[in-house]
Design a protein around this nucleic acid. Sequence first.
DNA 1: AAATGAAATTATTGTAGTTATTTTCATGCT
DNA 2: AGCATGAAAATAACTACAATAATTTCATTT
Lengths: 201, 201
Amino acid sequence: MPNRPEMPITDPQPEQAQPVGEQIRDLRKVRGLTLQGLADKTGRSVGNLSQIERNISDVSIPVLKEIAEALDVSINWFFQGVANAPADERDIIVRADNRRRLEFAGTGMVEELLSPNFSGTFEMILGTFAPGAATGSENYSRTGEVGGYLIAGELQLTIGERAFSIGPGDAFTYPSTEPHRCWNPGAAVATVLWVVAPPSY
Amino acid sequence: MPNRPEMPITDPQPEQAQPVGEQIRDLRKVRGLTLQGLADKTGRSVGNLSQIERNISDVSIPVLKEIAEALDVSINWFFQGVANAPADERDIIVRADNRRRLEFAGTGMVEELLSPNFSGTFEMILGTFAPGAATGSENYSRTGEVGGYLIAGELQLTIGERAFSIGPGDAFTYPSTEPHRCWNPGAAVATVLWVVAPPSY
DNA sequence: AAATGAAATTATTGTAGTTATTTTCATGCT
DNA sequence: AGCATGAAAATAACTACAATAATTTCATTT
């Protein structure tokens, strides 16, 4: 009997999807909510939510929808990306073909999560700017730190009062307390790898 | 006499190089040394080192060499990369053509720093693996966290007991307490963007 | 089996007191 | 002049403990 039980011989289907519990917890934390806060928003008890997050109680679709709304995601968040990655790698790896997408309707901007969850000290995001696309003049005045590496294309970056032209292979780092904007002045798509610490979405 | 002495009329070269003080401090901190510790290693007084790091005292070349040795870098560390970037962007940007290189003689591996300093909560590194190149079986058993994004090529990654095949566009994250190794099984160069938190070199 | 409220447990935060680290500075040195 | 030193003064980092908040458990209800 050479086979160990944790290594089954046949394993046709990819793997079981990740239960939603941890996902809810991660998302709640990154939103800075407590169980109480989420309970208030959803009109649900703290004890119940605690059990849901630890997969002791199952959630029905309507309930999950409520929770999703309170956490400001669409319900399909919980079935995208890493949520349906093979169990033996979902805590570590985010495959290129299986990322969670954050759409920014109207702007030519897409962001895709490269981190499997929000529980670490930083988060990686792959950003794509269509020609001419720009981030709004959002002043992320939170605490924290941002890093970026331009994989392809051109980027015009403004940090506080200073403006920089960034080319492929250039990297940058700034405190997220500084107001910052960026836009793609080029004719090609610009691709940036962002690092955000602490994770925020 | 309109010209201030620190602004000469002709300024053909880019900008003034960064004084070594901050660089020494950053490097000392990332090594986990106190001024006392560095004083012991260099046989130099704490007060003096404090002044040097704040650019109150200048260092002579022989002294800088001592310090460099104590901090385990070659003296040219202090003149590479961001150290000679234009003053108005050196705290933020690391240009593609002006990175600090960490050579790993013998192995087909090169790392280049993408962070201007070590004072943040994370550090970005561009890693290059020649075909067949591998990291030693170093078990970075420190505390902390590592993230990676494969820009090009193939990578074979081992985290603890688990092995993964990584392709372009795949990302991964793991605690640096886990022993980890990687090698390039492909015929092309593999390029990885690493994120390390907290910074360590 | 899920949901609740309340008690029990566990984390988190705040606050002194302590120790370690860094800065300052008067003085000697080259 | 300006670098170097040691010792005092000022800061910063750590520790322990209490207070508070957050989470889990569980007996009970729906």
